[in-house]
Design a protein around this nucleic acid. Structure first.
Lengths: 133, 133
DNA sequence: TATTGTTATACTCTATAACTATA
DNA sequence: TATAGTTATAGAGTATAACAATA
């Protein structure tokens, strides 16, 4: 069996492989949206985590981004240099955040094109998978 | 609505958000496996793409990794320095590949713990989503 | 003292541009 | 000439270690 095989030992394993593939395919879309806003991927993730209404300590941001504490310094530095963030979220940053959300929250075509029944079933299974049942 | 909200406009959008969350959660696992093999993420992806039986031109590798051509040079350089790859896959590289596959192909707990019915339903929906029905 | 954030350092990844080799 | 691959260069992300400030 070569790369890209989708028939696997268990349904969960195959679903996982397909999900991985979908994410990989969606990476292009993500990168396109990121550069649409002239942001690097970690900057996108950082901006999505921040909310002007609820300031977060940088250590919390590091946890959310799953990277080292020292790293957040640089990421936030660059966002701050562009006035998108202030070590307390700034006005323009909030606008960019809203724009990003609108673009990124759209499901990829592969999911949007599913039948309404499949969409509902998929949502319910994913809720159960993540304990949100 | 703050970050981490899961109730969204359409089932597909919510499923997408949950899937994104699952992938993000699984990143830690991926990084752990990568460092278990002492490989960087792009090195993992490169090694997974390569097959001793079917040598690939580096330009094809660049497409698979969704990065620039010039970039592959450095990634392959480092893999070659460690004798995992030879600009024609080497023996030890094949072993590492097999080990990697065994670890990475396991679905994350969130999926493995689903009921058999949910696993089957999820697999079938993902097949349809990616046109493998 | 323990936590938070920064700086220093070093390595990897990334793209663009310019170059070489080759079909 | 066109394609494949490399090198040069510059910028960003990443972690570790050491440090400063502070609760």
């Amino acid at each position: 069996m070569g790369a890209g095989t989708t028939r696997r030992s268990s349904p969960a394993a195959e679903a996982w492989a397909l999900m991985f593939e979908l994410i990989h395919l969606s990476k292009r879309r993500f990168m396109a949206i990121a550069s649409e806003f002239d942001l690097s991927p970690p900057q996108v993730m950082a901006l999505r985590q921040l909310d002007p209404a609820e300031p977060k300590p940088m250590s919390e941001l590091a946890i959310a981004l799953r990277c080292d504490n020292s790293n957040v310094t640089g990421i936030v530095d660059r966002l701050e240099d562009r006035g998108l963030v202030e070590r307390r979220p700034a006005e323009r940053g909030a606008q960019v955040r809203a724009g990003l959300a609108a673009r990124l929250d759209e499901p990829p075509e592969a999911l949007a094109n599913l039948s309404p029944e499949d969409q509902l079933a998929l949502r319910d299974i994913m809720r159960r998978a993540l304990g949100r049942a």
